[in-house]
């Protein structure tokens, strides 16, 4: 967590450019290509995760401070819970368990 003495926020600008590329890349793949639904979802899902990573590390300074490790563990656990909730809900409700 350096005190910025330099004048140009290079990591922010790079993060912003990457975010724009990922956003428009995902939009292009989803709207302009004729790949299958499954392939498109895997690609744009991966791009979304990458972009979230850019926000967390380049903009939010996730790892800085004496609690950097605690922050990472907390967020990783939050993401784990999110995946269990979303994937678990969809799986339970669509795999036939609820068909009766």
């Amino acid at each position: 967590m350096e005190k910025h003495t330099n004048r140009f926020p290079i990591s922010h600008v790079l993060g912003f450019i990457f975010s724009l590329i990922l956003t428009f890349g995902a939009a292009y793949i989803a709207l302009k290509t004729s790949l299958s639904f499954k392939v498109i979802m895997w690609i744009i899902g991966t791009l979304a995760v990458l972009q979230a990573g850019i926000q967390l590390f380049m903009f939010m300074h996730l790892r800085e401070g004496e609690d950097g490790k605690t922050n990472v563990i907390n967020i990783v656990y939050g993401v784990f819970m999110a995946v269990v909730i979303v994937v678990g809900s969809i799986w339970v409700m669509s795999a036939g368990h609820a068909a009766h």
């Binding site: 609690d67 605690t70 907390n74 819970m81 999110a82 995946v83 909730i85 979303v86 809900s89």
Partner: peptide
């Protein structure tokens, strides 16, 4: 600041429940 990060962890779960409902 650490406390706010923990709050954000809870916010992730809040939005996950809404994404879960939407996904279903």
């Amino acid at each position: 600041i650490l406390g706010f990060w923990i709050f954000l962890g809870a916010e992730i779960v809040l939005f996950a429940t809404l994404f879960g409902v939407y996904g279903v």
